[in-house]
Write a protein that binds this DNA or RNA. Sequence first.
DNA 1: AGTCAAGGCCAC
DNA 2: GTGGCCTTGACT
Length: 519
Amino acid sequence: MNVAADSTTGTPPVFDHESLALVAQSNLLQFYLTHLASTLMPIKPEVRDSITPNISLPGSPNSDTDDSVSAALVSSTQALFSLLGTNTTNSSAVSKKVVSKTASKLCSVCADKSTGLHYGASTCEGCKGFFKRSVQNKKIYHCNQNNLCEIDKQNRNRCQSCRFRKCISKGMLTEAVREDRMPGGRNGNSIYSNYKQRRSIIRRTKDYIAEQEQEQRERERERELERELEPERRPFQSLPSGKKLIKELVEMDCLDRLINLRGLRINPSTNCDIAPACKRLTRIGKQFIFFFSSFTNSQIIASGDEIVEQLVEWTKTLPFFDELPVEAHTHLLTQRWAELVLLSAGYYACSVFSPDSPDTTQMIDESDEISFTNPEVNLRLLQNRLALVLGKEIPFEHVSKEAGALVVRFTTLLHSFSKLKVSPEAYVCLKAITLLHLSADSTLDKSIIDKVKTLQDHFVKTLQIHLHQPGENSETTSLAQILEWLPELQNASSVLLHSKMFYVPFLLCKNPRRLVFDE
DNA sequence: AGTCAAGGCCAC
DNA sequence: GTGGCCTTGACT
């Protein structure tokens, strides 16, 4: 605001010294300033001094709420005092030069000697350098007090946080610090020109600071987690950490083998062989103890027990397999295998049928895709696929009666799981977390229970680190959202166990015709 | 050529 | 990290 430019009203009010002092103490100063240029009169120094410490305006220099207004008022106020001291009675004397000359005397941040305009405010070399370093090095400061530290020449170095905040509040713009560090020249007028733009830039600067602070907090949390996973702190020395662990898990996760169950395949030449197919489907069981103890005797393993076989195989390749006794693995798999089946099938469905997957186009012509929302579509799909595997038509009512509840539940689960947009890395962590989930009434030894819990904790932290990686897009689901989904998985698994149609999730996910042609 | 406002340097 | 002094280069 320019004092001279605004002195356009008709009859200006006339002030005496006392009323001017009162005005200065009220919030009406801005109003009177607009009339002042044409009513300038000599003022006593003692009255002038009494005004100075009591200035309190909405958006005054002490307030961060409306910085540009405050900056304008600072200039106006300084111009006013300058004029008051000059005894001038001519409004034309209120020149831009006077304003700028006076305003440039003191640093608007710390009141040290100003050396000119720097990044949008009149500041000293110290505040200029401080602001430049802060922006260039993306510094995030924290105030140890209450963000109300006073900044003056003497104590400006006591609190970087409040000093930087004051720089911003005085109109210094982070945009004015050049990213390319090009020396010389001047920044374009556009950065500083109009009031509105400044306001928006200041708002963006504040957003920028908040964003930086958020990023800093996340980096700190990640560092903290990584520190916890350092070798000397890790509970299991043999277990790698972070990316290496995830890489190992992804490499050893043979999802295709689990999905491509041999028991679900149809032989085009003998697909009328109904009895063996039924047998295959019903023999998928949970004989984990048996498998762990006599796994090498593979001739005993029937094709129908493939789910167990595959899960046992997977467990044996886990990086922490040797950390736990066999009975612990048996116990865990016995408790969690149904959840692992649903999780694996769900992830497979999401990765193959998601809109961004290249496989989608490949599947469109099959016109029998799994639905993420409609259980009836999936029941029809199941009916068709059962007919393929068994070699005879099954009435829809039968399918609905036997598998209706399971299909409804699995469809709901798919829907919520697809929203999580789980990456392959997050999926393998989630699988380990699911396996390592102990029931409250676990019969294992206390020491083993502790080990399992520590291991699970390790995978939760690994998952969290993965989710916080900068490469992950901003839409990445949070750890909490993923963990909150697990009870739903657990509930769905009880439906699966109840129905005993353990193969249904796999049959829904993969067309048995494709199983035939896959090899 | 002078001014101004960027960045850089370096003793502290 | 700070801040005084110097260099740089667009603009007048």
